[in-house]
Structure formats: C-alpha cells, structure tokens
Amino acid sequence: MAEAPETGGTPRRAARVILLDERDRVLLLHGFEPADPSETWWFTPGGGLEGDEGWEEAARRELAEETGITEIELGPLLWRRTCSFPFDGRRWDQEEHYYLARTRQTAVWTGGGTELERRSVTGLRWWTCGELLATHETVYPSRLAELLGTLLRDGPPKAPVRLETERA
C-alpha cells in the first residue's frame, strides 16, 4: 500500500485483483486495523499505482508482492469503485479498478509488501462463492459474494461496471 492522500485531495488510484483458481475460488487477504487488531476484514489483493505505472501493471505487481503469485492470466477490467475508509489513523480515499485473473499457482504468503502491510495483514485464504455468501465476516468490496456469483454465472461484463461508492 502506498501513501494515500487525506480526504479532499486527489483519490489514490488502486488496482485490485479478483484472482480465481481452477476451482473458481477467489483469493482474499485477511487484514486488521493496526490500532485495534480485533477489527478485521477480508479484501482482494491489490494496491496503489506507483509513478507512471499503468493499472494492469500495478495489478500484477501488487499481486506478486502480496501473495507471491506471478503465474496469472490477467483478464478484463470488471468493476470500478470509489471508496473512503479510516485506516491506520487517517482517512483513505481511493478509486479502485478490479481486474479478473486466473491462476494454477498455489498461494504462498510471502510476508512481503510495505511496512504497513506487514503490520496489518495476517494471511490469505481461497474462498468459494458459497463460503462468501455464508460468512458473517467483513469482506470488501461489501457485495463481493453477489458480484462473484454473477461473474461465475454470466462471465465478465461487456464493459466495466461502476459499483456503488462505499464509505466507512
């Protein structure tokens, strides 16, 4: 995760990945608020664009840094979302692009990433759509189970879908 601007500035641009394995399970990371480790959630791999990096390039780099997975077939842009949330003592405003990717590679948590990621991510897990629908844990984006179900049933949208803004 790169530094994020405070509220009112230009939103941080973040590329995120909906990574599916051969069994159509999606890979999510488990994170927590550094000031309150009891506040946890699951989220998709990805993070901020660096320098003049493009969205797809950032998606590949972030996925490799956060999961160790480099053997992927990067697919189309699925969704766009604007979000704003408190984390690590400040407000983060983001414009997110979600890319579909597939892999046969087994995930191995590398423990890599930024210092903030090392302080706030505990691991990762492959989830089925059914498990996402049944969980009471917090998952971002909040409609991921429904979105994944639609993706698996209908395939990628013909044009990227604008998701509702999420503000925590």
Rank of each mutant, 00 (worst) to 15 (best):
D154Q: 11
V139A: 07
S120L: 07
A134Q: 12
R91K: 08
D154M: 10
A134K: 03
R102V: 06
L116F: 15
P157A: 04
G89K: 09
Y99H: 03
T128A: 10
P157V: 08
G130W: 05
G149I: 12
W127F: 11
K158G: 13
P157E: 13
R153S: 09
R81V: 01
D93Y: 09
R125E: 01
L124V: 05
A159M: 11
L133I: 11
L100P: 04
T114D: 14
A145D: 12
Y99I: 04
L116P: 11
L151C: 07
V139K: 01
H97D: 15
H136W: 09
P86S: 02
Y98C: 03
G113F: 13
F87C: 10
L148H: 06
T128W: 12
R153K: 07
S84A: 05
R119Y: 09
Y99M: 03
E137T: 06
L133R: 15
G155Y: 10
E96P: 07
W126C: 12
T106W: 08
F85K: 00
E96M: 03
D88I: 05
G155E: 07
R90C: 02
E96Y: 01
T128C: 10
E131C: 06
L124Q: 10
E117F: 15
G149A: 05
L147M: 02
A145P: 14
K158I: 08
C129E: 02
A101G: 09
R90I: 04
S142V: 08
Q105T: 10
